[in-house]
């Protein structure tokens, strides 16, 4: 019996469908094809921006790391041997760049409080509940370490498996599982907390 009814997530599906294209594009980029690089950039920019936003708090740094990542892709596409998925390779570059950037520019001390962003306008009950829930989750994410946030985002949003995540963040698979376990606990607490507020 399978409990995995709604398994295929659109993002994960997109990522898999795009995989052969990525490889071809990277091969073309390695021979200096600027058009292929632009396509690759357009393909990865939204996903990398999202990923880097979960890792870095300084917007300028997110842009800088995104550009640095894509520059490395441009310069070293010839080194990509295809032993891992292209997305794993690109995300791993972004992760390393983000870690280095964060060491240079630690997160600002004062973080925006996501709770304050909840709209004050009267909203229908369902929407209000949804907004509170989202606010609570964003706040809980904010309180996790960047390493935990990375694992959560790569799992839930980017739809990656734990082995691929381990490759991206450069740690053993069990560490990925443990980080995820810890993060889920916090997120579920936040979810039930927002429900209590609501009731």
């Amino acid at each position: 019996m399978s409990w995995s009814g709604i398994l295929q997530r659109p993002k994960a599906e997109e990522a898999r469908a795009a995989a052969p294209d990525d490889r071809e594009l990277i091969a073309r980029v390695s021979s200096g094809d600027l058009q292929a690089f632009e396509r690759l950039y357009r393909l990865y920019q939204p996903r990398l921006t999202r990923f880097l936003t979960t890792l870095l708090k300084r917007p300028q740094l997110i842009e800088e790391v995104l550009d640095d990542t894509m520059m490395v892709v441009w310069q070293t596409a010839g080194n990509f041997r295809g032993s891992s998925k292209p997305s794993t390779w690109v995300f791993a570059i972004a992760y390393r760049k983000a870690i280095k950037a964060r060491a240079r520019w630690p997160d600002p001390v004062e973080e925006p409080d996501f709770d304050h962003r909840v709209s004050e306008e009267p909203l229908p009950d369902e929407e209000l509940h949804q907004e509170r829930l989202r606010g609570a989750l964003l706040k809980a994410m904010d309180q996790l370490s960047p390493d935990h946030r990375a694992v959560v985002d790569l799992t839930y949003f980017h739809g990656l498996g734990y082995r691929e995540i381990a490759e991206i963040v450069g740690c053993p698979v069990d560490t990925v599982k443990t980080r995820m376990f810890h993060a889920r606990k916090r997120l579920k607490q936040a979810m039930s907390g927002s429900l209590v507020d609501w009731l």
Binding site: R9, T49, T53, P59, R134, Y156, L187, K188
Partner: peptide, 14 residues
């Protein structure tokens, strides 16, 4: 949680 994260846009929030 997956649905929430798919719908969430931290980049837009920030």
């Amino acid at each position: 949680l997956i649905d929430e994260f798919q719908a969430m846009s931290p980049e837009i929030e920030s």
